[in-house]
Simulated assay, not measured.
Amino acid sequence: MKPIKNRITELLGVEYPIIQAPMGWIARAQLASAVSNAGGLGIIETSSGQLEEVRAEIIKMRELTDKPFGVNIAQAFVRDPGIVDFVVDQGVKFVTTSAGDPNKYCGPLKAAGLTVFHVVPTLAGALKAIEAGVDGLVVEGGEGGGFKNPKDVALMVLLPLIRSKVDVPIVAAGGMVCGRTMAAAFALGAEAVQMGTRMVSAAESPVHQNWKDAIINAKETDTLFLNRHGPGPALRALRTDRTEKLDVTPSENIMGEMRGVLDLYFGGDMEAAIALSGQVAGRIDTVKPAKQIIDEVMEEFHDVMNNMRNDYL
């Protein structure tokens, strides 16, 4: 497959502008190395807060791949004041920051020579990140899985709006699952895509098969947007008995609903916590290796772009 050359692939040193989302406990060496080895960019998470385990995962990454990879700093979940030194000491060159003020870590990270992208759910957040000096943005639509801005905006609206106001490279997140969605994101102004739910269901994903099966069996209507009115973050999750109850009667402590997360993620108890997932669960019907996912995305992307050119230009 022909590599793509644009600002993001050159910044990251990758063949394909496909980034794996930094899902807590999931985005570790087993999955991230498979994505990097396939020509995309694997990301190691810190949102679990288990920095000693994360350090071990980064060491493992270097055993499993010689390709570039990155680390995410999820500011709402990482309280360690030494997180910048931690990331720098690992020799990582690319960082995404999220769930917090971009001014907090951008300066020190860039001073250490790292490339920094900040995750934004609004135009105001994007402009603030630009002022902070980020190298690029991850623009995240409300259709994506995980923790979200309670005032959610679909990527189809958010991405071209932010592109019209900024010049930095943009990664599109939310609804990205195939070459067709990647082509649409590029048409709207992105230069890369980030995939979360598609990678949760990848063969190398460490989550229990029950979760993968739940994604495969999900309809496009089988996610819920929870906790829109707080307290705590809003989030998008798979429809289960637990989340349907939370949709009707919101929890007073949404993070408390995540206490059994390891029993869900790795034990397969889908009611033990909240199974975070994007709406694209309704488009995923098989478990595939990360390389096959990326190869198929790129093949379809090129086909769509060529067909559009032949049909309309």
Rank of each mutant, 00 (worst) to 15 (best):
T9G: 07
E10F: 10
L11E: 09
L12Y: 14
L12E: 09
G13P: 06
E15N: 10
Y16A: 03
Y16V: 02
I18T: 07
Q20W: 11
A21G: 11
A21R: 00
M23C: 08
G24L: 05
W25R: 03
A29D: 00
A29W: 07
L31V: 05
A32M: 04
V35A: 01
V35Y: 06
V35E: 04
V35W: 06
S36D: 03
N37A: 15
G39W: 12
G40T: 10
L41K: 00
E45T: 14
E45R: 04
S47L: 07
S47V: 04
G49K: 03
G49T: 05
G49C: 02
L51R: 12
L51D: 07
E52T: 07
R55N: 11
A56V: 07
E57Q: 15
K60H: 02
M61N: 09
M61V: 05
D66F: 03
K67Y: 12
G70I: 01
G70K: 02
V71D: 08
P81D: 10
D85N: 15
D85Q: 14
F86S: 01
V88T: 04
D89V: 09
Q90R: 08
F94Y: 15
F94N: 03
V95C: 05
T97S: 13
P102E: 07
N103W: 03
C106F: 14
C106V: 15
L109D: 07
A112I: 08
G113Q: 06
L114P: 09
F117H: 12
F117I: 12
L123S: 04
G125K: 08
E131V: 07
D135I: 10
G144P: 06
G145C: 00
F147P: 02
F147A: 04
M156C: 00
V157E: 00
I162M: 08
V166Y: 02
V166G: 06
V168L: 10
G174N: 12
V177C: 05
T181E: 11
A185D: 03
A187T: 10
G189K: 13
V193I: 15
R198P: 02
S201A: 13
P206G: 10
H208S: 08
H208G: 01
K212G: 01
I215N: 01
I216H: 00
I216Q: 00
I216A: 02
I216D: 00
N217R: 12
A218S: 14
A218Q: 11
K219C: 02
E220S: 13
E220Y: 12
D222L: 00
L224G: 08
L224H: 08
N227A: 04
H229E: 15
L235Y: 13
A237G: 09
L238K: 09
L238W: 04
E244A: 15
K245V: 11
L246I: 15
S251P: 09
G256E: 10
M258Y: 14
M258I: 04
R259H: 10
Y265V: 04
D269H: 14
M270A: 01
A273N: 08
I274Q: 11
I274H: 12
Q279K: 03
Q279Y: 05
V280K: 00
T286M: 00
T286E: 05
P289S: 10
A290C: 09
Q292I: 13
Q292E: 15
Q292M: 12
E299C: 06
E300M: 07
H302Q: 13
D303Q: 14
M305Q: 08
N306Y: 09
L313S: 13
